[in-house]
């Protein structure tokens, strides 16, 4: 009862209702209902191919890029249906940033990577841009490491640094939500723990949805966890609850490592 009350007092950032997604004739997501709460970290877990990444990409409409994708149902973001006819896709993606599985800095300088977003949204003032670069690089704890080589190619950074740069690039457009698609799966343990620390500090200001293969990671960083299996959400709850006392047998089997 205690838990339920606190959940109800939280602000809902996304409300997903009856979401179905098809790749051609294959149904990848089945009747998804989910709430994503403001300034909390929501982890999406489940075995490969369960639809968790596909689901993540419905939240900023990244699936629009793929041919033959059909989506039914609706997702509201701050109360408005993002699949509605007149929804401004660019405004959505500005507010809902994304960090990808493999670090994908553009083949430009570190500085140019970060100011790319602000520039396309019309910011031209050099001082403002300089300020954004320093602020975001400090936020991702990369400033000290790169402040002397801001104009060198971003591709010269290590994998972990590149991923933090990508997070900084995402923060530069001042999003409200950050979607992360297995952001540490291509990184070594040290780089991974740095990103996890970062997630903790970021969750004060941002709503974060993270897809992860790594159950310990979900347990360590998230407030809420949703367990996906073959395109369905089996269980969504507070992370402690999911990991200590799951309601569903399948969830228990998965988190105790009996399959997946």
């Amino acid at each position: 009862m205690q838990i339920k009350e606190t959940i109800e007092s939280l602000e809902k950032k996304f409300e997903v209702r009856d979401l179905n997604l098809f790749y051609g004739s294959f149904q990848a997501l089945k009747n998804i209902d989910m709430d994503i709460y403001e300034n909390k970290i929501t982890a999406l877990i489940g075995p490969s191919g369960c639809g968790k990444s596909t689901f993540l990409r419905t939240l900023n409409r990244m699936n629009d890029l793929i041919n033959g994708v059909k989506i039914e149902g609706h997702i509201t973001f701050d109360g408005k249906n993002i699949y509605g006819k007149d929804y401004d896709l660019i405004a959505l993606r500005k507010k809902v940033g994304m960090v990808f599985q493999k670090p994908n800095p553009f083949p430009k300088s570190i500085y140019e990577n970060i100011v790319y977003g602000p520039k396309i949204h019309g910011e031209k003032n050099r001082d403002v841009l300089d300020g954004i670069v320093e602020r975001t690089l400090r936020e991702v704890a990369l400033w000290e490491e790169v402040k002397d080589r801001l104009h060198r190619p971003a591709t010269g950074l290590s994998g972990g640094q590149q991923q933090r740069l990508c997070i900084a690039r995402c923060l530069a457009v001042e999003p409200e939500v950050i979607l992360m698609d297995e952001p540490t799966s291509a990184l070594d343990p040290v780089a991974t723990s740095k990103i996890e620390e970062l997630l903790n500090t970021l969750s004060d200001k941002y709503t974060i949805v993270i897809v992860t293969h790594n159950m310990q990671q979900a347990g360590r960083v998230s407030d809420f966890t949703s367990f996906f299996l073959s395109g369905k959400v089996i269980e969504s709850d507070k992370t402690e609850k999911i990991f200590s006392n799951p309601a569903n047998k399948k969830t228990e089997d998965y988190i105790t490592g009996r399959f997946g």
Partner: peptide
């Protein structure tokens, strides 16, 4: 991934 990165920033 470059295209996705750019589009995800609202470009």
């Amino acid at each position: 991934t470059y295209r996705e990165g750019s589009l995800s920033l609202g470009a």
